[in-house]
């Protein structure tokens, strides 16, 4: 029945304290969870707090952070990008194929390919007005398929040291270069968000697109930018993965999709858009990484990881979702 219950005049007065409490909870919860997790893992195995294990953990978190940083932008402006992992897999194949000709520049080429793929998805979503969920779900299959065709469905090995820069340790502190690259991506996004009005545009589009458009926010361009950056990040993540496995392969990054979404929502970015940020995403990625380390320290079967991610995504979304955006939950 099309009975519309008028919600224009909500019960604002009563809702504010609850909302504030919820907002506070959401703001600090991810940080608290991270600290608790680190302490728990350290209790189980004190060796975890040694610099070497921490750096190894940071190294392993790098591809996840790069993917999550890009995908977060798409979610922040109210859409979703389910194709990031498949796109990273496809790009890993291209990097491996192109290294003989381009050397280390193959990664840059993959970033450009990823950006183009993201732009195409964004354009289909914005221009043809197709839900991003569908566009990127279709994209997921398309990029996987292209990766399979380009690699003849086989792992493509990489010879030589032209990708060494993306998987090495730097200086006496032995900082992993991949972690520095990922941190660079996060810092770049954070700087753009802090120093320019871009963050407000993302939030306005994600939170109330009609209002954003009537306030002159270039909503279509914002969304295109989000998808393009997300694609570029997927390309970079593909490059990082090739560097550490000395090979590119269709399906190489596929298992990262759920951890990416889990990291974004566990960090506190609302899946409905309009609320979130890069700092939260970094914390989310750290939570997922420590969780993964912790599970292996505790001797949990890796097959159970997927179950935990699945439950985590649903649980985190149930806390952060803005239900007032939906008249009916589909």
């Amino acid at each position: 029945m099309s009975i519309k219950v008028d919600d224009k005049i909500g019960t604002v007065r009563r809702a504010i304290p609850v909302r504030d409490a919820r907002a506070l909870f959401l703001r600090f919860m991810p940080g608290i969870v991270l600290v608790v997790l680190v302490l728990a893992v350290a209790l189980a195995n004190p060796l975890f707090l040694r610099p070497n294990s921490l750096l190894t953990a940071a190294d392993s978190a790098a591809p996840l952070l790069v993917l999550a940083a890009g995908a977060m932008l798409v979610i922040l402006c109210g859409s979703i990008d389910l194709s990031v992992a498949a796109l990273a897999s496809m790009c890993s194949v291209f990097v491996a194929l192109w290294v003989p000709a381009l050397g280390g520049w193959a990664v840059l080429a993959a970033v450009l390919v990823g950006a183009t793929a993201g732009l195409i998805q964004g354009a289909v979503h914005v221009v043809a007005q197709i839900p991003s969920f569908i566009v990127t779900l279709g994209g997921l299959a398309v990029w996987s398929g292209i990766g399979l065709v380009a690699s003849s469905a086989a792992t493509v090995g990489v010879e030589g040291d032209s990708l060494e820069w993306a998987f090495t340790r730097i200086g006496d502190a032995r900082i992993p270069s991949a972690a520095l690259i990922a941190a660079g991506v996060a810092v770049l996004i954070a700087a753009v968000f802090w120093f320019t009005p871009v963050r407000r545009w993302f939030e306005a589009v994600g939170s109330a697109e009609p209002a954003a458009v009537l306030a002159g926010v270039p909503a279509a361009q914002i969304k295109l930018a989000a998808f393009t950056v997300s694609g570029a990040c997927a390309g970079l993540a593909g490059g990082l993965l090739v560097a550490r496995t000395y090979s590119g392969a269709p399906g190489l990054a596929d298992s990262l999709l759920l951890p990416v979404v889990a990291a974004i929502v566990v960090g506190g970015t609302a899946i409905t858009g309009g609320y979130g940020g890069i700092g939260r995403t970094v914390i989310g990625v750290l939570i997922i990484t420590v969780l993964r380390v912790g599970l292996s320290v505790a001797g949990v079967d890796p097959s159970i990881e997927q179950i935990i991610y699945g439950v985590l995504v649903i649980g985190a979304v149930s806390l952060t979702i803005d239900r007032s955006k939906f008249q009916v939950m589909k």
Binding site: S207, A208, P210, A211, A212, L214, A215, G216, P218, G274
Partner: peptide, 26 residues
């Protein structure tokens, strides 16, 4: 687009304030 109108000195107050007039989360 509204963006062009705003640049020319136009302003608009929509009827549905909560949905179109403001971004409630900001």
């Amino acid at each position: 687009s509204p963006r062009a109108a705003i640049a020319a000195g136009f302003g608009f107050v929509p009827a549905e304030r909560r949905r179109e007039g403001m971004v409630a989360t900001m």
